[in-house]
Amino acid sequence: MSNEESWFGRFVDTLPTKGWFKFLSKYVVTPYWLWKDPKPKLPGGPRVSSQPSDNVQRMMNLIMPLKDPSEIGKARAVMAIAQNVDEIFGGLDNVGTVHFARFVILGDKLCMISVYDGDFSNYIRDFIVTVGSVFDAIMAEIEGGSALIPTEQNVEAFIEWVHEHDLFQAPDFPTELFTLQDQAKGIGPDGPVHDLSTLPRNLVLQFHSNPDISLGGGYRAYPGFSAAQIREKLGVGW
């Protein structure tokens, strides 16, 4: 009789669905591996690339912890943004590199999700220039945000803060996770080859340092074109 057909074999196959085994995995197995093989936090946002289509329609998932996550605190965040609609459009129309942007309140976080063209620092900096007051209003509602107000006079620090709170974008090709984790530890592409079977564990452990992540860099219907190129093509000016 083969292994999987034995009573014990069938029992082992069902282990992952058993409550006590899940408990064991969560409270013993995972902590053990976190101790043994800790993963540094992976940086957020799209990765730097030399190639044109990697540099347009880039995704930002800025996740900001609310200073006051109560109902009242959330309402204050809503007000801060609602009062700045003119400012936001002013920025959108004059920075020219943003495809879409939206705000979402999710649990105790305020999220700003956008699709932009070009360099991340330029994008944030150009927005500080045009709508610095909006960022100030938002940061006033965010945990640790006060130190960055006024953003116009903390340009570099604010850009770094945003970068830190932009979600890590898991690679579109799963095995690239090895490369990124190596990179975070200062190991180059010529480093040792990982055991492929450890890929699931490496993902599990990464969640400890990056509890929220973006699944890949997103899917695009018309990749490769900037907002201005699309506007030009549609005949709506840029």
Partner: peptide
Amino acid sequence: HSATPLQKIRDYLSLKV
């Protein structure tokens, strides 16, 4: 060669599939 139940348990404990 199938994985033995013990190998499978070892994999679970190593957070492998």
